[in-house]
Design a protein around this nucleic acid. Structure first.
Lengths: 135, 135
DNA sequence: AAAATTGTATTAGAGTATCAGTACAATATT
DNA sequence: AATATTGTACTGATACTCTAATACAATTTT
């Protein structure tokens, strides 16, 4: 599991871990039920305190991205989180609004924004293909 | 200018102001060259320190959303910011990635995510229409 | 059963962000 | 020119975030 941490990036280390793991899961580089590195191992690898990794794992569990079994390990959860439809839509709308406001401000049309979205989606899917090929 | 501030929302007051003004501009409720409320007036309206509003206005100016003339006032800027194409694309891609990762995790397909995006865009445009009708 | 490995809990400290108080500078208005 | 109105700069107090240190609990392995 390759994580790239920038201690002085402004964004907290634990948040960087959360974001990158989410991205890895979305990209399929981490498959359901696959075990994440133990907190101490990952902590040693990226040179931070184990608690920092533990916090990231806790947040990921809250988000439904992973599940943990104390003494055993932390594993990638399967399927989407079982949230109510209304809540799923609300969460996605927040991101959509952010994208639209940013796009408008940057002078992109809706069509252009959607084109960018398609391209980024293709990039994500490409990562997924590569990761399957590797393993 | 109607702003809804939640002092204990977790997100800083100045950030709430920034976000809502950006949204208002994107929705056309604030037109180019329109004057924002003076820092003291808005501060009194939402019951915060003028400095907090001033900070928000400063951030908005850095973002190219408004321009300020000391002694005169703060006004909505026109057009998109004159950023390099590469930078514009990068900024939008950040939002797009966030949307896609979230969508994947929530179990939305790309098509569904794009549909949500269209709906939210329609909602934004609707706000715009209403604000024009009002004024 | 013992030891090793894993996640968890609690506490504390350093740093930073947030906001308020006050005084200042530039522009507009009278 | 004088006054009022606007944004700005500086300082400081408080609260909170982030990280680390240490000890604990549950599970797996030997």
């Amino acid at each position: 599991m390759q994580l790239h941490i920038s201690p002085k990036d402004g964004t907290p280390i634990y948040a960087q871990i959360v974001g990158q793991v989410k991205h890895l899961v979305a990209a399929g580089r981490l498959r359901p039920h696959e075990e994440l590195l133990p907190v101490r191992t990952l902590a040693a690898q990226i040179l931070v305190n184990p608690n920092t990794v533990a916090r990231a794992y806790r947040e990921l569990e809250s988000a439904g991205v992973v599940y943990t079994r104390q003494g055993a390990g932390t594993y990638v959860a399967e399927g989407g989180s079982p949230l109510a439809e209304r809540e799923r839509l609300r969460l996605l709308s927040v991101r959509a609004d952010a994208l639209l406001v940013e796009a408008d401000h940057l002078g992109f049309t809706l069509e252009e924004a959607m084109e960018v979205l398609r391209e980024r989606d293709a990039a994500l899917r490409n990562e997924r293909e590569n990761s399957h090929a590797e393993s």
